[in-house]
Amino acid sequence: MNFWKALLAIDRRWIFLFVFLALAVPMFLNVDFDLSISREVQGLYDALDKLQPNSKILMSFDYDPPSAPELQPMADAIMKYCLKKKLRIIIMGLWPQGPIQANMALNRAFLEEDINRDDYVYGVHYVNLGYQAGNEFVIQRMGSAFYEMFKRDYTGNRYEELPLMRGIKNFNDIDFSINFSAGYPGTVEWVQIAVDRFHVRLGAGNTAVQAPQVYPYYNSGQVVGLAGGMRGAAELEGVFARFDGGTVDYKDKGTKYMLSQTIAHAVVMFFIVVGNIAYFVIGRKDKLKASK
């Protein structure tokens, strides 16, 4: 009985410790588990897979460091795939920190042996247009001309000096676009403006909190593919590894983090269950006492 009482009144620091361990320990493990790939992630892969080499793909990075654990693994995996497939990549951000996160994804991709930095020329094979303030109005204006919103790129080059951008006026010249989103402005705005008004083909990576808002757009076909939260990231890594693995190592933080997150989740559930058992055991005993 004392055991159950002690359990109910457990110092919450023990819970903290368990959560910390549940998150930290799996990071040391080298796991490789095969998740079932959901329809929406498969859709994202299929859309990318269909693109011809040299197709132009627009990536909008609409998140900041706090959301990076969920979104960065997706961005990393997609960036690797696109570079390997020799797609032409145009990067932009509706969040100030977005383009910095994009550069991190690029640098990570270039660490792969099979993706040699020297094979890719900035301005020809990929471009980072940087951040632009104005939320959905940026997308709106890009609908008539990208140039209006991005007179200069992230490093200060003029738009017309970038060979890749010379052939691109607006969304009509883009073959596919992907948006990594942690809130507003994000996927909802891209769907409402870029997809609905300018008929862009859009795939999206979302945080777990955002994803439920985007599912309806996936069901209606306005978004062709969707990866949600850490599970989405892990699935994405899995699907790339399955169909395009070998020389490029796709399984990375998404898979690793997924394990951490699942175990931490299990810890939370375990405590809830234990707490309720303890509560009932004690409750019954107290009732017995009261009746005496």
Partner: peptide
């Protein structure tokens, strides 16, 4: 329940 998962990911970022 829905937010627990994304809160965990915040901490994953720091531990990482």
């Amino acid at each position: 329940g829905y937010t627990v998962m994304s809160r965990m990911s915040l901490l994953i970022g720091r531990i990482d």
